[in-house]
C-alpha cells in the first residue's frame, strides 16, 4: 500500500524497504479529528466590565485634597427615552435625551452607542493616551428592567473607545468606566 524506500539492501541482507500499513494510520487520524471536533468549545464566552465604586468613610489621618470634582455621565434608562446628564458635583453641565426604541429579539441600541461616543468626544475628561483613568458613567435603571436590556445599554456605553498606552503599546480601551446607581 505504501512504503518507505531507504535504498541499499544487497544480496543476502534483509530488505531495507519497509511497508507501512496505512489503514491504522488513517484510522488514528480520523479518531483524532473526531475527538477534537467533539471536545471543541464552539460557544465563546466573554465578559463586560462594571465597577462598584463604593467610597468609604474619609480617612482622618489624611488631608483632604481640595480638588474640583470630575465630570460624570449619568445615564438614565426611562420608559421611552435615554437621558444623558453630565454632572460636575451637583452642577449639571449638559443634558440631552435620545429616543429609546422598543427592541424585539436582538437587543442592541445602535443610536445610543453613536450618541454616547459623540457625548464622550464633547465632554470626556480623560483623552490623553498616557492617562490611565477612565471617565465615569453611572447607570440609573428601573428595578424591573430585564438584564439583557441592561447589558445592551452597557454594551452601547462601551462602544465609545479611546487609545491608551498599556505596557508600552497602544491599545483600544472603553472610554467609560461604568457603575450602577444605588438608592
Amino acid at each position: 500500500m505504501a512504503g518507505v524506500d531507504v535504498g541499499g539492501g544487497g544480496k543476502g541482507k534483509r530488505q531495507l524497504n519497509m511497508e507501512i500499513n496505512m489503514i491504522p494510520f488513517i484510522d488514528l487520524l480520523m479518531v483524532t479529528i473526531m475527538f477534537l471536533l467533539i471536545t471543541a468549545v464552539w460557544v465563546s464566552y466573554s465578559r463586560i466590565n462594571a465597577n462598584a465604586q463604593i467610597p468609604g468613610p474619609p480617612d482622618p489621618t489624611k488631608e483632604i485634597d481640595p480638588k474640583a470634582p470630575e465630570k460624570v455621565l449619568n445615564l438614565h434608562i426611562l420608559d421611552n427615552e435615554f437621558k444623558l446628564v453630565w454632572k460636575q458635583g451637583a452642577t449639571v453641565v449638559s443634558e440631552s435625551t435620545i429616543e429609546r426604541p422598543r427592541l424585539q429579539g436582538d437587543f442592541k441600541y445602535d443610536d445610543l452607542a453613536a450618541k454616547l461616543t459623540q457625548e464622550w468626544t464633547t465632554h470626556g475628561g480623560h483623552k490623553d493616551q498616557s492617562d490611565k483613568v477612565l471617565d465615569q458613567a453611572i447607570l440609573h435603571s428601573d428595578n424591573k428592567l430585564i438584564f439583557k436590556d441592561v447589558i445592551a445599554v452597557i454594551d452601547a456605553l462601551y462602544n465609545a473607545q479611546r487609545d491608551m498606552m498599556v505596557d508600552g503599546s497602544l491599545k483600544k480601551v472603553p472610554a467609560f468606566n461604568m457603575s450602577f446607581s444605588v438608592r
Binding site: 462594571a50 462598584a52 463604593i54
Partner: peptide, 23 residues
C-alpha cells in the same frame, strides 16, 4: 430583573469584590 442584579452586584462589592464583570 435589574433589582436582583444590582443586589448581587452590591453584595459582591461589600464582600471585597469591587471589580465585577458580567459574563
Amino acid at each position: 430583573s435589574a433589582l436582583v442584579v444590582k443586589s448581587v452586584f452590591q453584595t459582591a462589592a461589600f464582600a471585597g469584590y469591587p471589580n465585577i464583570s458580567f459574563m
